[in-house]
C-alpha cells in the first residue's frame, strides 16, 4: 500500500533529480515497468540502458527524462529511502499506486496529488488513517500542505 507523509519533513530526499543522477542503476531503464512509465508519462521509448527516444528532444540520456519519471524509478527501485514525490505531476499518480500495489512504499507529498476519480487505498502517515478516494484524501491531508 502507498503510505504518504504530507507536508514538510527533513527525512526525505528532496531533490530527486540530483539524487537520481548520482545513484541510478542503468539496469532500471530496461525493466518492463520503467519502459511503461516512460512511455506513458514522457511519451518516450526506451532504446537501451543509456538511450531514450523522445518525440521532442530526440535521443536523450536517462538524466534528461522528466523529473516525474526519475522520481517514479527511485520510488520503485530504491526501497531504502523516502522521496519527495511533489516532483511528480498528476500523470504519475497511477504509477505510484501501481508500484505500491503489492508492497509497502512510503513517499512525501508537499501538495495534494490528484489520484483520480476511482477508489484506492492510501495510508496518510500524519494521522495513520487509510483513505479510499480523493474526497477522503483532501479532507484527511489537506491541512498538512
Amino acid at each position: 500500500m502507498l503510505n504518504i507523509y504530507f507536508g514538510d519533513t527533513d527525512d526525505v530526499i528532496y531533490n530527486t533529480a540530483v539524487y537520481f543522477k548520482n545513484t541510478y542503476n542503468e539496469k532500471w531503464l530496461t525493466k518492463e515497468l520503467t519502459k511503461q512509465m516512460i512511455l506513458d508519462v514522457d511519451k518516450s521509448e526506451v532504446v537501451s540502458e543509456k538511450v531514450i527516444n523522445s518525440p521532442v528532444l530526440g535521443m536523450i540520456s536517462p538524466e534528461q527524462l522528466s523529473g516525474g519519471v526519475k522520481t517514479l524509478m527511485l520510488v520503485a527501485y530504491d526501497k531504502k529511502h523516502v522521496f519527495n514525490a511533489s516532483t511528480c505531476g498528476d500523470n504519475c499518480a497511477k504509477w505510484l499506486l501501481k508500484i505500491a500495489e503489492n508492497e509497502k512504499r512510503e513517499i512525501n507529498l508537499r501538495h495534494i496529488m490528484n489520484f483520480g476519480d476511482g477508489e484506492f487505498k492510501i495510508r496518510v502517515l500524519n494521522t495513520n488513517r487509510i483513505v479510499h478516494n480523493m474526497k477522503e484524501l483532501i479532507l484527511e491531508a489537506g491541512r498538512y500542505v
Binding site: A17, V41, D42, K43, S44, V56, L57, S66, G67, G68, V69, C88, G89, D90, N91, C92
Partner: peptide, 11 residues
C-alpha cells in the same frame, strides 16, 4: 508553473 510531468518545465 505546475502541471503534469514530461511537459517541458525542466527543458
Amino acid at each position: 508553473v505546475r502541471g503534469d510531468s514530461g511537459t517541458g518545465k525542466t527543458t
